[in-house]
């Protein structure tokens, strides 16, 4: 039973360097194996901070974060090698010398280990991940020349290619066109089942929340103010002025 707890936060607060007030505070959260959790909440409420506290990228915090039963303070790198992370608003500028395939394969570099080179198998996995997201023909294109939506798919493929045990996705659909926005969340939900993943997805899109998961966390002002089913979360989210499905109107 404790083996089924993948992510556990106990009374966690994270303070950014140079700041006085914690960006998230008093967080208690347990995510079990193969759970798919959507994280919603207004801008600047601490969603990104929560994800980066879980994978240990933001080190100084109070409380305890354990992933796979390991303390991320001391085992951060081990843990991160098993996590597919898609950061928010990640965009490569035109002219940067990396192909889409480079970017996808790079996701595995932490796992491959010092002095080792990517194997044929690593490359095959990268190719398969790109195929899965329908971007195999972009492999040799320079990353900076791709559209925002294409880059977002590359970042998702990158997270998948490393065969992660956990996915942490920070607004991963924000730049997708309407077609992809219907398909990709579904794809992730399927994959999540098939590959026995444990997944946290930050989104502003209420439709995704309703259709694709059975647990929603609402973060407000650095605290978890709701944790339950999407149906129960809906009234809370709808009433909040900041969480109208902004993304839906964008494109």
């Amino acid at each position: 039973m404790t083996e089924d707890v993948i992510i556990k936060l106990e009374n966690v607060s994270t303070v950014y360097e140079g700041e006085r007030r914690p960006a998230i505070k008093g967080i208690n959260l347990t995510v079990n194996r193969n759970e798919l959790v959507y994280v919603v909440g207004p801008n600047a409420s601490g969603k990104t901070t929560l994800l980066e506290t879980i994978n240990g990228l933001l080190p100084p915090f109070n409380g305890k974060v354990s992933v796979f039963g390991l303390d991320v303070q001391s085992h951060g790198r081990e843990v991160r090698r098993e996590i597919g992370y898609v950061p928010q608003d990640f965009m490569v500028k035109p002219g940067e010398p990396y192909t889409a395939f480079d970017v996808v394969l790079m996701g595995c570099y932490g796992q491959i280990g010092f002095l080792n080179r990517p194997s044929e198998e690593d490359k095959k996995r990268a190719e398969q991940a790109m195929k899965l997201l329908g971007i195999q023909e972009l492999a040799s294109r320079p990353m900076g020349k791709l559209s925002g939506g294409q880059q977002q798919k590359v970042m998702l493929a990158r997270a998948m290619a490393k065969k992660p045990r956990i996915l942490l996705l920070d607004e991963p659909f924000s730049n997708l066109d309407p077609d992809s926005r219907g398909q990709i969340p579904l794809l992730i939900t399927e994959l999540h089942e098939k590959q026995d993943l444990t997944t946290l997805i930050v989104t502003h899109d209420i439709h995704h929340m309703l259709e694709h998961c059975n647990r929603v966390i609402v973060v407000t002002g650095g605290r978890i103010t709701f944790d339950g089913t999407p149906e129960k979360a809906l009234p809370l989210v709808e009433n909040h002025p900041h969480t109208t499905p902004l993304e839906g109107h964008h494109h």
Partner: peptide
Amino acid sequence: YFTWKELFAIMFNRKLAEADGIR
């Protein structure tokens, strides 16, 4: 030659390299 993989990932984005477990 020997640290190319890590250097390549860090040049692309240092934070992402850390997120993938590279020191």
